[in-house]
Amino acid sequence: MEKKIYILVVEDEPEVLDSIVRDITEFEAFFPVEMADTAEEAREIIRSILDEENEIGLILCDHVLPGDNGVELLVEMQNNEETHHTRKVLITGQAGLQETVRAVNEADLKHYIAKPWAKEELISIVRELLTDYVLEFEPQPLRFMQVLDGERIADHIRTSGKLTDS
């Protein structure tokens, strides 16, 4: 069985959560999407994904959540070896400078998306970050080519020698 690469979306407002998931549906056939509305629930989902020997390629995370906030969750993931490489994105309207700086410095935040977002912007960020992830960690990046940045994946095959004449 090939391992699955998940997208995790953490957002406490149901309508916003729905709208994020709807915007990224084109990835869902290749990258299963999991949803959580608190950091606590996100931790459980992360645990169960990892327990099944799958990976989390990307997390789209709101900052203001009931209980632990989004930045705390991202920092925690950064410090965990198994989710260290997950590409981390904040989608928020209300993260202050201090918390955002912490997310950049301590959670290697890859992108900050301010609400409200444009659908195209969200899709292109998701595509680029998942392409980064797949090129770095996936032994067969070809199987994700049609939904990700095909040019970058093809160029990677050209330069990496992962695929040769046989």
Binding site: E151, A154, D155, I157, T164, D165
Partner: peptide, 16 residues
């Protein structure tokens, strides 16, 4: 060159 590397390179040309 290898057929595979050539194809990969040409794919970067044809996708756009």
């Amino acid at each position: 060159m290898s057929n595979t590397a050539t194809t990969a390179m040409m794919i970067t040309v044809i996708l756009p």
